[in-house]
Amino acid sequence: MGIINGAEFAPTSTYLNTASCGLLPARAVEAIQSLATENGAGRRGGSGDFGIVQAARESFARLVGVPHARVAHGGSVAVHAGLIAAAQRPGSEVLFPEGDFSSIINPFVVRGDLKIRYTPFESLAEAIRPTTALVVYSVVQSADGRIADDTAVREAAAAHGARTLNDATQAAGWLPFDASLYDYTVTGAFKWLLCPRGTSFLTVSEEAQESLVPLHGGWLASADSWNSTYGPLSELSPDARRYDEPPAFLAYHGAAASLGYLEETGVEAVHAHDTALAARYRAGLAELGHVPVPGASPIVSVPGLADREPELSRAGIFASARAGHLRASFHLYNTEADVDRILDVLSG
């Protein structure tokens, strides 16, 4: 069990795969089951509670340091990215690091009328130029856990008048993260934020909101939602709520519970716990003669060991094979014993 709050987690395996999907805290499982029971019984509460969805929005906003009015809820990073891609003028130059996650790249590529550029991750800041309209990148890389030189990227973007879209999916929850530093952020919440799949968040700065059209806006996009359920809306919500997608209530009831747990725990405590386990693993790999991708995140990838993933799985240890690497990721439900167990199997 996790050492921060063991009562919340009881994995039956050595689960080292948060970078793919986080485990749900017990309170989130209970919230989902409760709503499902209400729904199955046909009781009034079974349709879901918008107040709980709002609580999830507010909790996420506090975790990433923005007013909740700057946060929209949704179901996937790709949908959020598609909204931003649609707002770009034809011919605009959009810059990506090579090998970033496809959900933030494809919505721009498929438009067909944007100028797409790629650059090595380590030289992202240097690749920004006066013609760059938007820089799109993940602060923590999914494949191998590398962390961007974020200050340099933001400063270069500001110097050249480029906007920034940051994917915080592999960062928010363990890495202290300030979403107010970017024009846009997108976050899939089902990894380090321990929410169910089907929960994601978009943050939009007040200035960037001026050019972002709520293309998928339904009745929730209205300033007065409950009086806008039929016919065209009379007025858009003045803040990021205009970009809300209809919530998947089962997922968001669980999300509110998970995000509340992370607030109670504190991101700084999570950061210390997760990175200490990753450092122990890195040191053990070095003793075995393996060289992981350099870094200090709780995502640790080892080139050339992807073929060991099935062996680990048979031993009840769940990690991932990504981009030719063996990727292990450490979070609240992991302990030093988990680190030692994967090292023991790899040593064999």
Rank of each mutant, 00 (worst) to 15 (best):
R280G: 14
R242P: 01
Q209I: 06
V270S: 11
H290A: 15
H271Q: 14
S237Q: 01
E268A: 14
L288R: 07
H273I: 07
S200Q: 01
D274K: 13
G254A: 10
E268V: 13
P246T: 13
S200N: 06
E268Y: 09
L202N: 02
H290I: 10
L262Y: 04
V267R: 04
T275L: 11
S228C: 00
L277W: 13
A240M: 01
S222A: 15
D244G: 07
A208Q: 04
A208H: 04
Q209V: 00
R282T: 13
S205M: 08
A269Y: 03
L212Q: 05
V270K: 09
S225P: 05
V213R: 10
Y252H: 10
Y281A: 15
A240E: 00
D274M: 12
R280E: 15
Y230E: 11
A272L: 13
L250F: 14
G260Q: 01
E245A: 15
A251F: 07
L277Y: 14
P214L: 02
S205W: 09
V267E: 05
A256L: 04
R280V: 12
F201Y: 14
R242V: 03
R242H: 04
A276I: 14
Y261E: 10
L285V: 09
D224Q: 02
L250I: 09
P238G: 04
G266V: 09
R241N: 06
S225C: 00
G254H: 06
Y243A: 00
T229M: 12
L288V: 07
S205V: 07
Y261W: 06
L215H: 09
G289V: 08
E245G: 10
P292N: 11
T265D: 03
A279D: 15
L212M: 06
Y261H: 08
G231W: 11
S258L: 03
P292H: 12
A278V: 12
A272N: 11
H271G: 08
L285I: 10
E287M: 12
A286F: 06
L236E: 00
G260E: 05
A257I: 08
E210R: 12
R282G: 11
